[in-house]
Simulated scan of single mutants.
Amino acid sequence: MAGQSGSSAAALQGGRGRGVVISDDWPGYSLDLFTYPQHYYGDLDYVLIPHGIIVDRTERLAKDIMQDIGYNDIVVLCVLKGGYKFCADLVEHIKNLSRNSERFISMKVDFVRLKSYRNDQSMQDMQIIGGDDLSKLTGKNVLIVEDVIGTVRTMKALLNNIEKFKPKMIKVASLLVKRISLPDRYRPDYYGFEIPDLFVVGYALDYNEYFRDLNHICVINDRGKAKYRV
């Protein structure tokens, strides 16, 4: 996944908070190179991002966040369910950095759930579950932690709901951003990887509640979609 140009390459963009760009023709890694749950054998095409690379990238995002918003009390708003693993790892990295730094971030973690997919299709109406608790964000510094940002609609709906309660600051960190050709596509303040418009699973990202126990981020195949379709 290293390299600045050429086919089958993922180039690292410059600038804090900007992500590793995985090109459309990146072939990924063979599943035979990694261990993964046996009950998913035959359900995946390839490994898009191995677990170790996710961990290292998350650690760097934690460092960027510390440099930008250290010395603040932060409410971390974790978007469930897919964001819980990324959020837990990100918060732990920030805590470790905070313990050994002159900067300090005091964090409280809260949760909200967005339901926007059925099978592999985005639903027209998005549900925000837990929105009644957003009033506690008034006057607070908020860091939204999301698993993947695709269409603008989902994140804009969440931001619009939070902004009604007048927080002091809102920052967004997402593990993944899908590369979708939209004139007003949304870019979070921090993101780990920019990926092609693929339906990916693993590292808590699911397909109808399956594949959350897969450590790597992988591309699901047609057999897997049919097997776990509801």
Score class of each variant (00 low, 15 high):
residue 1 M to F: 07
residue 3 G to F: 13
residue 3 G to S: 12
residue 6 G to E: 07
residue 6 G to Y: 02
residue 8 S to H: 14
residue 8 S to K: 15
residue 12 L to K: 14
residue 12 L to Y: 08
residue 12 L to P: 00
residue 15 G to K: 10
residue 18 R to Q: 13
residue 21 V to Q: 09
residue 21 V to K: 13
residue 21 V to I: 14
residue 22 I to Q: 05
residue 22 I to R: 06
residue 22 I to L: 13
residue 26 W to G: 00
residue 28 G to N: 05
residue 31 L to W: 06
residue 32 D to Q: 12
residue 32 D to Y: 05
residue 34 F to K: 01
residue 35 T to R: 12
residue 37 P to S: 11
residue 44 L to T: 10
residue 45 D to N: 14
residue 50 P to F: 10
residue 51 H to T: 04
residue 51 H to D: 09
residue 52 G to E: 15
residue 55 V to G: 01
residue 55 V to R: 13
residue 56 D to Y: 06
residue 60 R to S: 08
residue 61 L to F: 06
residue 62 A to W: 08
residue 65 I to S: 00
residue 65 I to A: 06
residue 65 I to F: 08
residue 65 I to R: 03
residue 66 M to S: 02
residue 71 Y to D: 15
residue 71 Y to L: 03
residue 74 I to L: 13
residue 76 V to M: 08
residue 77 L to R: 06
residue 78 C to R: 06
residue 78 C to L: 09
residue 79 V to N: 04
residue 79 V to T: 08
residue 81 K to N: 15
residue 82 G to K: 05
residue 83 G to A: 15
residue 85 K to W: 04
residue 87 C to T: 13
residue 88 A to T: 13
residue 88 A to L: 02
residue 89 D to N: 14
residue 91 V to W: 02
residue 93 H to Y: 14
residue 94 I to A: 03
residue 95 K to A: 09
residue 95 K to M: 10
residue 100 N to L: 13
residue 101 S to Q: 06
residue 102 E to H: 09
residue 105 I to C: 02
residue 107 M to Y: 00
residue 108 K to I: 08
residue 110 D to P: 00
residue 110 D to I: 11
residue 111 F to K: 03
residue 114 L to W: 03
residue 115 K to R: 13
residue 116 S to T: 12
residue 116 S to Y: 11
residue 118 R to W: 04
residue 123 M to F: 01
residue 125 D to I: 13
residue 125 D to Q: 14
residue 133 D to R: 15
residue 134 L to V: 06
residue 134 L to I: 10
residue 135 S to W: 05
residue 135 S to I: 09
residue 136 K to A: 09
residue 137 L to E: 04
residue 140 K to M: 13
residue 140 K to W: 00
residue 140 K to A: 14
residue 140 K to C: 10
residue 144 I to G: 03
residue 146 E to A: 05
residue 146 E to F: 10
residue 147 D to M: 10
residue 150 G to V: 03
residue 151 T to I: 01
residue 151 T to N: 07
residue 151 T to A: 09
residue 152 V to F: 05
residue 153 R to W: 04
residue 154 T to V: 11
residue 154 T to L: 03
residue 155 M to P: 01
residue 157 A to N: 11
residue 158 L to C: 07
residue 160 N to H: 11
residue 160 N to I: 03
residue 162 I to R: 04
residue 165 F to W: 10
residue 165 F to Q: 09
residue 166 K to C: 12
residue 166 K to L: 12
residue 167 P to N: 07
residue 168 K to W: 00
residue 172 V to W: 01
residue 173 A to R: 02
residue 174 S to I: 05
residue 174 S to P: 03
residue 177 V to C: 12
residue 179 R to T: 12
residue 179 R to Y: 09
residue 180 I to G: 03
residue 182 L to Q: 14
residue 185 R to H: 11
residue 190 Y to S: 08
residue 191 Y to P: 00
residue 192 G to V: 03
residue 193 F to E: 00
residue 193 F to H: 01
residue 195 I to A: 01
residue 196 P to D: 00
residue 196 P to M: 07
residue 197 D to L: 06
residue 197 D to E: 11
residue 197 D to R: 08
residue 198 L to Y: 15
residue 198 L to C: 02
residue 199 F to A: 02
residue 199 F to M: 03
residue 200 V to I: 12
residue 201 V to T: 04
residue 202 G to C: 12
residue 202 G to I: 12
residue 207 Y to F: 15
residue 208 N to G: 06
residue 210 Y to P: 00
residue 212 R to I: 05
residue 213 D to M: 07
residue 213 D to S: 09
residue 215 N to F: 09
residue 215 N to P: 12
residue 218 C to D: 02
residue 225 K to L: 11
residue 228 Y to R: 06
residue 230 V to R: 14
